[in-house]
Amino acid sequence: MQSIENRRNEELFTNSLMTANEIAVYLIKHCCSLEAFDSYMFGSTLEGIGHDIDILIIGPSGNALSVLKQELMFAGSELPLDILYMQPSEAIETDFVNRERCIELSVLASMNPRI
């Protein structure tokens, strides 16, 4: 019987490196705790294959965040994730979402698969 780890790795790299859409689908599928946070992608991966994958997570600190970090660490064990965690007040203070033209993971996941 195939292990979860092997199945996950097959999903990740069946043929080539994943697009932004595929990464969004993959993270939403494997990180249930994302539901409780606002999650975005920004940076070079939105334009193609970047050397890292910039993710922004906005939400409260505490136990839920610790669980999400664990899920993202496991899901990202074979992805170059660069994750920025912000509290809602920090996101407002920095205007990060607008400034960096962040796109919600849920929006990316519903877009054309080759984006």
Binding site: I49, G50, H51, E78, P80
Partner: peptide, 14 residues
């Protein structure tokens, strides 16, 4: 390995 793929992809798109 995944990290080698990413490194090659990004070096070769120069």
């Amino acid at each position: 390995k995944w990290q080698v793929k990413y490194a090659l992809e990004n070096l070769n798109k120069d």
